[in-house]
């Protein structure tokens, strides 16, 4: 493992800083940060699979939705306690997701991207027609049990999640597993030619991704207290997740977290000037240009800047 003291120092600084944040900012800002935390979780989930292996998922809300709907239905319709429904939701996301996505991992990357996009649409249609008495149909569900009261508690829960998931994934991706997954994204043939079963590795990446998406989706629905299929299975939501991951820096953990915060606050600050969907015009445009000319994201830009400063101070 390639862990240095400054890595741990940065994590400590991040966690301590986030811990005292509620003392420093308003309730409104806190709610924005809660959204950023969940977006960061979704972006990390996307990145473990797509940012690393290059098997792009355009249907990530499908996984998030599996987790969210499972726990929402269990708690609301069957009065199952959340201690059971949330683990069940994670399990359903991992098992259900792989049953459906597995066939797609057998074919080339582009097909995988196509299939995931189709699955999100399938899920959108299914929740509306199959047992609408359970799923709430087109209108979705509301009055779902919430786990916390008030912005501060909601914040601490989301922060606990992102800190533990982020740190856990970061440790895992520092091992050779992380190296192998990134290697698939660079040259899958050579990974196979190094004697590794890439299907097994991709499945592992997928399982990790589904675990994080299912957990994030389940907690998110218990934070919102409601679920609406049109907002969830929406291409704009896919777009937000992917842009957060790649803008921050794909194939890293800090990148998606950073990207999620950057994006959430950019959207928030654009709101007074551009109230509607037009915001996506500006922010999609920024994302597109950045991605095309700095595909490694802001994380990489910062790194370059830091090493330039270091280089200067040394000479």
């Amino acid at each position: 493992m390639n862990i240095r003291w400054y890595h741990l120092a940065l994590w400590t600084a991040f966690i301590v800083g986030m811990f005292f944040l509620p003392q420093l900012v308003s309730k409104g800002t806190l709610r924005t940060i809660i959204f950023a935390n969940y977006l960061a979780i979704f972006a990390i989930s996307w990145d473990v699979l797509s940012g690393r292996t290059g098997y792009v998922s355009f249907g990530h809300p499908f996984l998030i939705g599996l987790g969210a709907y499972t726990t929402a239905i269990l708690t609301k319709r069957f009065d199952v306690p959340v201690e059971i429904s949330i683990p069940a939701a994670v399990l359903v996301t991992m098992v259900g997701g792989s049953l459906l996505f597995l066939p797609a991992l057998r074919v080339r990357g582009s097909y995988f991207a196509l299939v995931t996009l189709a699955f999100m649409e399938l899920m959108y249609q299914l929740v509306q027609v199959i047992r609408p008495d359970l799923t709430g149909g087109t209108r979705g569900m509301s009055g779902i049990q919430t786990l916390t009261r008030g912005a501060v508690n909601g914040y601490y829960l989301s922060f606990g999640l992102i800190a533990s998931l982020g740190f856990g994934m970061w440790l895992l991706m520092k091992t050779r597993l992380g190296t192998a997954l990134s290697a698939i994204g660079m040259n899958e043939e050579a990974v196979r030619g190094s004697g590794l079963n890439t299907t097994k590795l991709k499945l592992a990446a997928f399982m990790l991704s589904a675990f994080v998406a299912g957990l994030g989706g389940a907690f998110y629905v218990h934070y919102l207290g409601s679920i609406a299929p049109r907002a969830l299975f929406d291409i704009n939501f896919v777009f937000t997740i992917i842009v957060a991951a790649i803008l921050g820096g794909a194939s890293t953990i800090i990148g998606p977290i950073f990207g999620a915060f950057f994006l959430t606050f950019l959207l928030e600050y654009l709101r007074p000037y551009l109230p509607g969907a037009e915001r996506y015009f500006i922010y999609g445009g920024i994302a597109l240009v950045l991605y095309m000319f700095e595909p490694k994201g802001l994380h990489h830009v910062l790194q370059m800047a830091l090493s330039a400063i270091k280089g200067k101070s040394r000479s």
Binding site: L177, A180, N187, A190, V191, S194, L196, K200
Partner: peptide, 24 residues
Amino acid sequence: PFSDMTVLENIRVGLMPDNLTQMV
């Protein structure tokens, strides 16, 4: 080669056991 890795990391991929537990 794996373009975003160092020379040693490239060789590391060749040395890896095909076993997830050992990899981790």
